[in-house]
Write a protein that binds this DNA or RNA. Structure first.
Lengths: 214, 214
DNA sequence: TAAAAAAGTTTCCTATTGGAAACTTTTTTG
DNA sequence: CAAAAAAGTTTCCAATAGGAAACTTTTTTA
């Protein structure tokens, strides 16, 4: 019983949205890293309390709390303990999850330009294969409107993996922890979508991209 | 001249093997980690002095020295500065050797035409994102050689779901239980790959298709 | 709904980081 | 080879991380 209720509590918290902003101490134009937020997500995802996480990592409850609330910048040694204790890999500090569902013997064809349109300030999405629900992949085409990284408030970040192919134009792919990469027509990239990412158009005309997210 | 000689000196150091052992202060069964060694390798690899690296990263010469000699465990903030300043990837800092089973926090870019090629009688595949193992999706481009359904011995059939987009040319998509569908450039289809399926080129030239299988 | 328990946060203090400058070692030049 | 310059290391100290325990908030139990 106690177990159950604890679980419920944790579930609730897991859904909670973190509001605190990282106060970039020294870093010049560095994007917020939000390490703490990440750590908290992972811990709650595993249904651990600070106390339990403390035992696992060898870090004090208070220290964990401060890290999660971005009150301190943990030493590298602390990050290592954290990562080892929680059973994740450092680069993998940004990954989770599984998936269910199936399309069960079905097929859906989307004609050029006939997908479902969703405009945003930075992209204009055209969702493909909208007839099928519960599918493992979400394919869409988009026209990149963003002309600089600053057009994004923050990194785009979501569950799963993402594949992208440049259909036309030239873009720059920004990925957290990686160097920006220029991609031309025909170039493609595959990455863990829980890493921050963003795409900017470099050419005169808007670039067109095909995405598939799993 | 001076330039040249400096370079030589740095080269020599780059080859030098680090002997110093990290004295694991608190960490119990923590891996060596040797962050410092790695940083030094990278700095020397780029032919930078501590002074130059200091300017680039915003960290003091002394601090860099201590990090390289594993005398201190830099804060995460310092690691971030370091990584940004030296223009390297965080994943690059950690065991560039090992890595298995997942894409966790990784990225792979494939340039146009630079994928791994696999010719068959009916398709010519170019596998994309081959650097990542354990990924959820398998993307590839292919040139359709088949000119009639009879070119196939039987339906193509495999586990999972498949998405396809016509990059150029015209094709006919045959799918078990469905009517054949003509697809033009920009058209796409999504189907359960365990249904029999096959694609035939209709035009004069071979058609190009992008596939993603999950 | 009050009391108890659990989870999380903050305080206080010690240990360690990070930076400026002194110092040592290595390399270059005369 | 000696002096000068450059590169790297160490020292000293202010700033900050990490841990113990007090404190606050949330959840559970009665």
């Amino acid at each position: 019983m106690t177990e159950q209720v604890h679980f419920l509590r944790k579930e609730k918290e897991a859904v909670l949205i973190q509001r605190k902003r990282a106060h970039s101490a020294a870093g010049a134009a560095l994007k917020p890293l939000q390490l703490g937020k990440r750590v908290k997500e992972i811990r709650l995802g595993k249904g651990l309390t600070l106390e339990e996480a403390s035992h696992l990592t060898g870090l004090a409850r208070s220290t964990l709390s401060k890290i999660e609330n971005e009150q301190i910048s943990p030493t590298f040694a602390a990050v290592t303990k954290l990562v080892n204790g929680l059973g994740i890999d450092i680069p993998q500090l940004f990954n989770p999850a599984e998936r269910e569902g199936t399309t069960g013997g079905r097929r859906d064809i989307t004609r050029n330009g006939k997908g479902s349109l969703h405009p945003t300030p930075t992209y204009e999405h055209e969702l493909l294969a909208t007839e099928l629900s519960g599918k493992k992949m979400i394919p869409y085409k988009s026209t990149i409107c963003a002309r600089s990284f600053d057009d994004y408030q923050d990194w785009v970040r979501h569950e799963g993996e993402e594949f992208m192919l440049v259909l036309s134009g030239r873009v720059c792919l920004y990925t957290e922890f990686y160097q920006p990469a220029e991609l031309e027509e025909g170039d493609s990239a595959y990455y863990d979508a829980s890493m921050g990412h963003a795409v900017v158009s470099l050419g005169e005309e808007d670039a067109k991209i095909l995405w598939v997210t799993a």
